[in-house]
Each structure stands twice: as structure tokens, then as C-alpha cells.
């Protein structure tokens, strides 16, 4: 266990270090969600006046929750890019060689993703607060909201790590990103589910991200809904993609 923790710590430290000292990594990871927040919450703010839009904290808060979860998911996805880059450059082989306990490599990348998202999440929250976001949830509800973000980041990071380890090339970027992007934007991003119609409503209804998004919006509004379903889905995702990441690592070990 100690060996596992040493490896986790080393890999996570490098991930954070490289993010902080390299503006090319840090700036896009912050600007991207900020752009979404400003563009959606600002440009589409009159959606709040649409009949049957009943979200008490307002449209900025409505959009904040999506951008918060989206930044968590993409924080995980970007980690996959870093893993793929490490395989392309050969640095992953150094990690495989140096790590007495190789499971710690996955844990380190995942912890690095979480810590990087902590920076992005804090900036997005601050920006939303400045933009006039209203919060009706109490302390416990906000902690639960944070928990959903953490789990979202974990699931995305495990998916991205696993796929990057299977494919072991930077060209895997698009394949890692696309399913996450599609799932996120086929959820009720701009309006509540009840206002969606046609095929997009049907897809959104069964999209697991919808349950997470509605639960998170409920927590911010102080009226929790579908919490068990949201946490259950994310926990199941973490288990499934945790196993997937472990298999990805085994594939990389076999390939040498």
C-alpha cells in the first residue's frame, strides 16, 4: 500500500507541477469553462423568462451547474491527453519502469486530474459568484454538489486514462473527448428537461448525465432531487471505468 501511495503522489505531483508551470496547459483549462459560463449564462440569460422555466436561483446559477460539471468532466478528459502524450514521448515507459506498484500510476493521474480541476472549479465558481449567481442550498447540499463534481471528474479521468493506455498515442485525443462531449451536450444544458421536445428530449431523458445535472441543480437550489440516482450512476461509472483503466494499464504492460 505504501508503494502504491508513493507512486500516486509522484505522478500526481508531476501532473500538477506541469499544469502550474506551463501556461499552455493551465490557461485553456481555465478559459474554456469560463467562456462557456460567460457565453451561456450571459448570452442566453433571457431563457429565464421563458414560460415554465422554474429554476429559483436564476439562469446564471442554472448554467453555472452545467459548466461546473462540464469542467469536472473535461478536467478528466485532459488527463487522458496527458497520458497519451506520455506514451508517445516514452515517459510512460519510465513511469512503468520506476513504479514498484503500477496501479499507483492510474491513481496518480486521476489525483492529478482532481487537483487540476480544483483550480478550474474554484475559478469558475468565483466567476459565477461575481456574475451574480444565487445559491439556495445549505452547506451539506453544497458539499454534495462538490461530491458530484468530484465523481464526475473521477469517472471522466478513469475513462480517459483507460482509453489512452489502450491506444497509447496522442491521436487518441478525439476518441477520448468525443463521447464525453456528446453525453454532456445531449443533456438539458440550456433549458430544463421539461422544455425540451422531440428526439432531443427522449435522448436527454435517458442520458445518465441528465440525472447528475438535475441533481446538481437541485442541490444549488436547495431542493435536492434524484440524488441517489445521480450518485449511484457516478459510482457505477467509477467502478466500470476503474476496471477499464486497469485493463488499459494491463494492455500497456503487455505491449511493453
Amino acid at each position: 500500500m505504501r508503494r502504491f501511495l508513493h507512486v500516486t503522489r509522484g505522478v500526481a505531483w508531476r501532473s500538477i507541477h506541469n499544469t502550474v508551470v506551463n501556461p499552455a496547459i493551465l490557461v485553456p483549462s481555465i478559459v474554456f469553462p469560463l467562456f462557456f459560463l460567460v457565453a451561456f449564462a450571459g448570452g442566453l440569460s433571457r431563457i429565464a423568462e421563458v414560460p415554465n422555466f422554474h429554476y429559483r436561483p436564476g439562469y446564471t446559477s442554472f448554467q453555472f451547474v452545467f459548466v461546473f460539471l462540464q469542467s469536472a468532466a473535461f478536467g478528466g478528459v485532459f488527463t487522458g491527453f496527458a497520458v497519451a502524450r506520455d506514451f508517445d514521448s516514452g515517459f510512460a515507459r519510465r513511469l512503468l519502469l520506476s513504479a514498484p506498484h503500477r496501479g499507483g500510476i492510474i491513481a496518480g493521474y486521476v489525483l492529478g486530474a482532481l487537483l487540476r480541476w480544483a483550480i478550474t472549479g474554484a475559478v469558475v465558481t468565483l466567476a459565477a459568484a461575481i456574475a451574480g449567481m444565487h445559491v439556495y442550498g445549505d452547506g451539506a447540499e453544497l458539499v454534495a454538489l462538490l461530491g458530484l463534481g468530484v465523481l464526475m471528474n473521477l469517472v471522466a479521468a478513469l475513462w480517459a486514462c483507460g482509453l489512452a493506455m489502450f491506444l497509447r498515442t496522442e491521436q487518441a485525443g478525439a476518441v477520448i473527448q468525443m463521447p464525453v462531449f456528446v453525453l454532456l451536450f445531449l443533456a438539458p444544458v440550456y433549458v430544463p428537461l421539461s422544455l425540451l421536445t422531440g428526439w432531443i428530449h427522449d435522448v436527454a431523458r435517458y442520458n445518465p448525465v441528465t440525472a447528475v445535472l438535475q441533481a446538481a441543480r437541485g442541490l444549488l437550489a436547495g431542493s435536492p432531487t434524484e440524488l441517489a440516482l445521480a450518485f449511484g450512476l457516478l459510482a457505477a461509472g467509477a467502478l466500470i471505468f476503474g476496471a477499464f483503466a486497469r485493463r488499459g494499464l494491463a494492455s500497456a504492460e503487455r505491449a511493453g
Binding site: 505504501r2 508503494r3 508513493h6 507512486v7 503522489r9 509522484g10 505522478v11 505531483w13 508531476r14 507541477h17 506541469n18 508551470v21 506551463n22 514521448s89 516514452g90 515517459f91 515507459r93 519510465r94 513511469l95 519502469l97 520506476s98 513504479a99 514498484p100
Partner: peptide, 26 residues
């Protein structure tokens, strides 16, 4: 082991590489 390609992280300094390696090795 020092393999054929000295796979190093261009962003890290020499000292940081060694500290990272020491961390990985516990």
C-alpha cells in the same frame, strides 16, 4: 535502468526529475 531513449519530461528540470524518481521509489 537507462533505456535506449532517455525518455525525459522536457518541462521538468534535472533536479525535479530526480526528486520525482525518488518519490516514485519511496
Amino acid at each position: 535502468a537507462a533505456l535506449q531513449e532517455a525518455a525525459l519530461d522536457a518541462i521538468l528540470t534535472g533536479r525535479e526529475h530526480l526528486v520525482l524518481q525518488a518519490t516514485l521509489q519511496g
